[in-house]
């Protein structure tokens, strides 16, 4: 069972280049067409469950706009 994670996109920085979307291994990121950033872009955001917190989106993001979180391993899992 993969650990679940989530991302928080800084909408002041995101420029909707879509590099996180094409590189996401879980394919769970999309541009949120219902929102618009101060710079006039549709920001990237999680649109469905399935994020594992792998951090690949943050590796390719040119604006360092993505903060990645992952649930902590329990004692049992980390010993296994």
């Amino acid at each position: 069972m993969p650990l679940s994670g989530t991302i928080v996109v800084d909408e002041n920085l995101c420029k909707a280049c879509e590099l996180c979307i094409v590189n996401c291994p879980a394919q769970v990121i999309a541009l949120d067409k219902s929102r618009i950033t101060p710079r006039g872009f549709h920001p990237a955001s999680l649109y469905k469950e399935g994020c594992t917190g792998c951090g690949t989106c943050s590796v390719v993001c040119p604006e360092a706009a993505i903060t990645v979180y992952r649930e902590k391993r329990t004692e049992k899992e980390s010993n296994a």
Binding site: G5, D10, G53, Y69, R70, E71, K72
Partner: peptide, 20 residues
């Protein structure tokens, strides 16, 4: 999802200003 319960995998580096 409670972000405070999760570990941070990646965040904006300190040496890079948080500007556009």
């Amino acid at each position: 999802i409670h972000l405070e319960d999760m570990q941070v995998i990646y965040q904006h580096p300190e040496s890079l200003l948080n500007v556009n």
